[in-house]
């Protein structure tokens, strides 16, 4: 087999033969085919669908409407209020996750009796499936027999049972709380990995220079933790924007429209109204917003990684 001058070079700079290139392509072909079928085709097809007024319950009339579905979504007041609610939910959730996960990671980075047990316990919420988590919180928040009311009542914090999810002022924050509870373990682990990678020498040198605990945290821990911090923030932001399960199980978008977020609107359009055209358009808008946000986060914050 011949190696042509100027041929491709491999990972370690060694030239790659035509035979190797062809073999690589053949070996990758099955996976590429699978990706084409399960990822690329559905994505393109759903875009195609978004250009039609496709309602499953009206199968014999599917007119081409171009970008009308997108315009319809963008002119819908409910869409913009959903954007606002999704933003609120994301800000609340991600802020809480970052603060709690950082505190937990700092705690677990210290040596103390019971640290291993605490680390194991931390994983419990992460191990619980989202649906089970939702049902558990539904029971906790229930206004009639919920554990939260029971606890607060027994501790004399309240003199009668409160309305939780049914109070539209509290709904979004309560769902965010359930989301945070589930997400904190993963965030903690990722931050803990970052903490473990900080050389102990840096802290020793800072101590010799007379830096107190706060200064060591601000000048060593936080800068060194930035890559993990960015990773967690971007991941959790994406998760919060797309989150659906808890809204479905706890409130179904209610009461009134108090928890009607973007992910819920996509579900309602697509699977309740069976309007696949507008549902796909909405999903595309949501995907685009998520992508742009992730891009912005990586460009502005990620460059400091």
């Amino acid at each position: 087999m011949s190696i042509r001058a100027g041929a491709l070079r491999g990972v370690f700079g060694a030239p790659v033969s035509r035979y190797d290139q062809a073999s690589a392509l053949w070996l990758l072909a099955p996976m590429l085919a699978v990706l084409l079928v399960v990822a690329v085709f559905p994505v393109l097809y759903s875009f195609w669908i978004s250009l039609f007024d496709l309602r499953l319950t009206r199968p014999h009339r599917v007119p081409f409407v171009g970008l009308d579905n997108y315009l319809e979504v963008l002119q819908d007041e409910l869409f913009w209020s959903s954007v606002w609610r999704t933003t609120s939910f994301t800000l609340m959730s991600v802020t809480a996750i970052m603060v709690i996960a950082l505190a937990m990671a700092l705690l677990l980075n210290e040596e103390f009796r019971g640290r291993r047990f605490l680390s194991a316990m931390l994983l419990v919420p992460w191990a619980i499936p989202y649906v089970a988590n939702g049902l558990m919180w539904k029971w906790i928040y229930d206004s009639g027999y919920g554990a939260l009311n029971g606890l607060l009542f027994q501790l004399d914090f309240i003199d009668k049972y409160m309305v939780w999810l049914g109070d539209s002022h509290k709904t979004l924050a309560l769902i965010a709380n359930a989301f945070v509870w589930k997400e904190v373990p993963l965030a903690t682990i990722l931050l803990l990995v970052g903490l473990k990678s900080i050389p102990a020498d840096l802290y020793s040198a800072a101590r010799v220079d007379g830096a107190d605990l706060w200064r060591r945290f601000v000048h060593i821990t936080l800068p060194a933790l930035r890559p993990s911090f960015m990773l967690v923030m971007i991941y959790e932001t994406m998760m919060a924007i797309r989150h659906f399960d808890l809204f479905f199980i706890l409130t179904e978008g209610g009461p009134a429209e108090a928890s009607h977020v973007l992910a819920w609107q996509v579900y309602v359009e697509t699977f309740r109204k069976l309007s696949f055209g507008t549902g796909s358009a909405l999903a595309y808008i949501m995907a685009l917003v998520t992508f742009l946000l992730a891009f912005w986060l990586i460009r502005t914050l990620g460059r400091k990684l």
Binding site: V163, G166, D167, T251, A256
Partner: peptide, 12 residues
């Protein structure tokens, strides 16, 4: 009627 009626489904 409880204000929680908006979160109470038929089964609950």
């Amino acid at each position: 009627v409880s204000p929680a009626c908006v979160e109470i489904g038929e089964l609950n």
